[in-house]
Simulated scan of single mutants.
Amino acid sequence: MLKELVKEEFTQDIAKGAVLVDFYSSTCSPCKMLAFILKDIEKTLGDQVTIIKVNFEENPDLIEEHKVEGYPTLVMFKDGEELSRKSGLQQKPVIIKMIEEAL
């Protein structure tokens, strides 16, 4: 499942199961490329992982809380605990490995 962040639901959304969070900026070219990769991954693994997109500009409190220093940044959560983090544009095999390690 791929969804845009609803701020009030963030903590609830990451609390259960495997959740990949994409911290992105709408003006960032690598972020736009990553969005296509994530849509492709969602088609393949959508029933096993939730992917949440968090807009950097609209959510400064979440950016600070999760110590995100740049974009794009992917953070993999399992039952609310951060398992791994990757900054910059990542290729599909790297992202799939992050997800598989959380399953």
Rank of each mutant, 00 (worst) to 15 (best):
K43S: 13
M33I: 08
M98W: 05
E57Y: 13
A18S: 15
M98G: 05
S25C: 10
N59W: 09
P60E: 09
G46A: 07
K7C: 07
Q91Y: 15
K16W: 01
Q12D: 13
I96Q: 10
D47W: 08
V19P: 00
K97V: 05
K43H: 07
T44Y: 09
L62V: 03
P93L: 02
K39E: 15
A18F: 06
E101Q: 15
P93T: 02
K78Y: 10
T27M: 10
E81R: 15
T50F: 02
M1I: 02
C31K: 01
I52A: 05
S84A: 15
N55F: 08
E69W: 12
E64K: 11
A15K: 09
I52L: 12
L103I: 14
T44W: 04
D47R: 11
P72C: 07
E100P: 11
K92R: 11
L45C: 09
Q48I: 06
N59L: 12
N59A: 12
L74N: 03
I96D: 03
E81Y: 13
F77R: 09
K78L: 12
Q90R: 11
C31Q: 01
Q48F: 13
L45D: 10
L62C: 06
E57D: 14
A18V: 12
M1V: 06
P93K: 03
D79G: 08
V75R: 01
V54M: 02
E58F: 13
K97C: 10
S25P: 03
L45M: 13
K16E: 13
E82N: 10
L45P: 05
L62H: 03
I41L: 01
Y24E: 03
L20I: 00
T44E: 15
A15W: 02
D79W: 06
D47M: 11
F56G: 02
K97Q: 15
Y24N: 04
S26I: 11
K3P: 12
Q12R: 11
E81Q: 15
K92G: 03
F77H: 09
I37C: 08
K7M: 06
T11W: 07
E58I: 08
E9G: 09
E8P: 08
D79K: 04
